[in-house]
Design a protein around this nucleic acid. Structure first.
Length: 155
DNA sequence: GCCAACGTTGGC
DNA sequence: GCCAACGTTGGC
């Protein structure tokens, strides 16, 4: 049984890792997620799933590109690295806490679909959409097929 | 830089 | 198990 392709939105601070970085590198492990809900979302990912690449904490927060899930979930290696900012002393190789996937660059949008603009479609996107939910800071979140279509139609 | 919202930690 | 304190996220 093959599950149908799913869609996600993943936030990154462009100062740390931008869509241009992904375009240059091609494929990158999504390291450093230390939130259980975000981790659980990555656990549910499958190779080929679509990803909206989102820039956060910057001049114009918004969707800037499209990427693809390139690997099944696997343990985030930075949790074992005591020199890493993402080191987690409570994680072991036998019992990892944090998992990630690699994402591959697909394309850069012609323009940024700004959060401000996305908010104008909050009703159509639905109450359950974590990006426009008040106070939500979730950095890896599911996107439905219709939300995916709507968001990319704004490009 | 501010601050609201949220998650985690740790004392009890 | 409660909850205050603290740290982080992320828009503004």
């Amino acid at each position: 049984m093959t599950a149908r392709r799913r869609y996600w939105l993943m936030k990154s601070e462009p100062d740390a890792f931008s869509i241009d970085d992904l375009q240059r590198i091609g494929t990158e492990p999504w390291t450093g997620v230390r939130n259980y809900q975000a981790r659980n979302n990555m656990r549910a990912m499958q190779v080929g799933d679509g990803v909206l690449f989102y820039h956060s904490s910057c001049d114009i927060p918004g969707i800037v590109g499209v990427a693809t899930v390139a690997t099944p979930p696997y343990p985030d290696p930075t949790q074992f690295d005591s020199k890493s900012d993402y080191y987690d002393a409570k994680a072991t190789r036998e019992q990892p806490r944090w998992e990630l996937v690699d994402v591959t660059f697909e394309r850069k949008l012609k323009r940024t679909i700004a959060l401000e603009e996305i908010r104008q479609h909050a009703d159509a996107l639905g109450e359950g959409f974590a990006l426009t939910q008040r106070g939500s800071r979730l950095s890896v979140l599911p996107v439905t097929a219709s939300q995916w279509k709507l968001l990319l139609s704004l490009e």
